[in-house]
Computed example of a mutant assay.
Amino acid sequence: MSPTIFMIILSSLATGTIITMTSYHWLLAWIGLEINTLSIIPLISTTHHPRATEAATKYFLTQAAASAMILFSSMTNAWETGTWDITQLSSTPSHIFLTMALAMKLGLVPVHFWLPEVLQGSTLTTALIITTWQKLAPMSLVYLTINSLSTTVLLLMGLMSTVIAGWAGLNQTQTRKIMAYSSIAHLGWMVAVSSIMMNLMVMNLIIYLIMTSALFQALIVSQSKTIQDTTMTWALSPTISILTMALLLSLGGLPPLTGFIPKWLILEELVTQNLIPTATMMALSALLSLFFYLRLTYTTTLTLSPNTTTTKFKWRLKPNQPTQPMLIATTTSILLLPLAPLMLM
């Protein structure tokens, strides 16, 4: 892909998200989502491979259906109330349609099946964009309409997402599918707390974006597409290998690291609201996710797969990717825990 076309696509991607995040009219929000969807399709299918074409088709159909549902929800609300204002969503059918549409946009259970398949058919760079930037527009709509959405439905979807994503991720050997289920689980935590304390959801989203970006950049630099590939990260760079281990443990939510902040505060808030069974189930589901993070940690830093002698000299080849963004994101996502009190003020 030529640099000009690539820049046009990226600028369209950014424009679509910004239009949705700053709009107050349902039609403007829908237009932003459509621009966003249409600009990511060429990035997914840029490798000219049948898997990439399949992933692009699945992504387009899913996102088009979700956008159509958002448009239908807003039209139903405008028909009943006479307003197109995003914050004035008072029709009950509109609530139901909007909740399902946003769940489909984000990839929440039970409409999550497209996300692992789309990521598996994409390149690691495109998968990074889908799991980070593409979550901003739907999350901004959740932020704007949270007073209209059902707390019970959001809690149920968040609980199902954390449990099912943790369960499904156990059986995966592809790093992109593991990251897809990791994304579903993290979004489940965000959605569960969104109707109770919005500040926590925003903080969780920011930390998730930083940690996921850092781990994807580490996978891109080391070219690790499967669990077996991660066993050779040490040969490319022992430093990246150690940082990847700390990143994975942070994503799992172990206490000294950044990923512990959101889980700790969300569980505390759920217990404060007397949702003790929900908090217990979500804490147990975090153990499922932690298992496949620990497995990746083990293969990345502690094992060496059977290989020829020549592969041990991979360190002679310098990485052809810039490592400065990875360094910044990695450091932030590992060492942010002491700043937790400042983030909550």
Results as ranks from 00 to 15, higher is better:
163 V>P: 01
204 N>A: 13
187 L>S: 14
227 I>C: 09
233 T>E: 08
239 T>C: 05
218 A>W: 15
226 T>A: 03
216 F>P: 00
182 S>Q: 08
210 I>V: 14
240 I>T: 10
159 L>N: 05
167 W>S: 05
204 N>D: 13
189 W>L: 05
181 Y>V: 02
207 I>V: 08
213 S>C: 12
188 G>Q: 01
232 M>D: 12
208 Y>M: 11
237 S>L: 08
181 Y>P: 01
171 N>Q: 13
187 L>I: 12
241 S>Q: 13
241 S>G: 12
209 L>M: 11
187 L>F: 12
183 S>G: 05
160 M>F: 12
226 T>H: 03
169 G>D: 01
158 G>C: 01
224 S>C: 04
238 P>Y: 04
222 S>M: 14
214 A>N: 07
227 I>H: 10
164 I>A: 09
164 I>F: 10
231 T>Q: 10
240 I>V: 09
205 L>D: 05
200 L>N: 04
197 M>G: 06
205 L>W: 06
188 G>E: 00
159 L>T: 13
200 L>K: 10
213 S>I: 11
239 T>Y: 11
187 L>P: 04
242 I>R: 09
170 L>Q: 06
231 T>N: 06
163 V>D: 01
196 I>G: 02
180 A>Q: 04
193 V>C: 06
190 M>I: 11
234 W>V: 14
227 I>E: 11
210 I>C: 09
179 M>H: 05
191 V>F: 07
207 I>M: 11
186 H>Y: 14
233 T>K: 09
201 M>T: 15
188 G>V: 00
206 I>F: 10
194 S>P: 01
239 T>E: 07
203 M>Q: 13
186 H>Q: 14
167 W>I: 00
178 I>F: 10
221 V>F: 06
199 N>L: 07
159 L>M: 12
223 Q>N: 15
213 S>W: 09
170 L>H: 04
178 I>S: 08
222 S>D: 11
174 Q>K: 15
200 L>E: 07
159 L>R: 04
196 I>K: 14
199 N>E: 10
223 Q>T: 13
167 W>V: 00
216 F>R: 06
237 S>E: 08
215 L>N: 09
176 R>V: 00
166 G>W: 06
191 V>G: 03
199 N>M: 08
238 P>L: 02
169 G>Q: 03
227 I>F: 14
182 S>P: 01
164 I>R: 08
220 I>T: 04
163 V>Q: 02
235 A>F: 15
160 M>V: 02
160 M>D: 00
177 K>R: 13
180 A>C: 01
195 S>I: 10
222 S>I: 13
212 T>L: 05
200 L>G: 04
219 L>V: 02
165 A>I: 05
175 T>H: 05
195 S>F: 12
240 I>A: 05
186 H>C: 04
235 A>E: 15
186 H>E: 10
216 F>N: 00
198 M>L: 15
225 K>L: 00
183 S>Q: 04
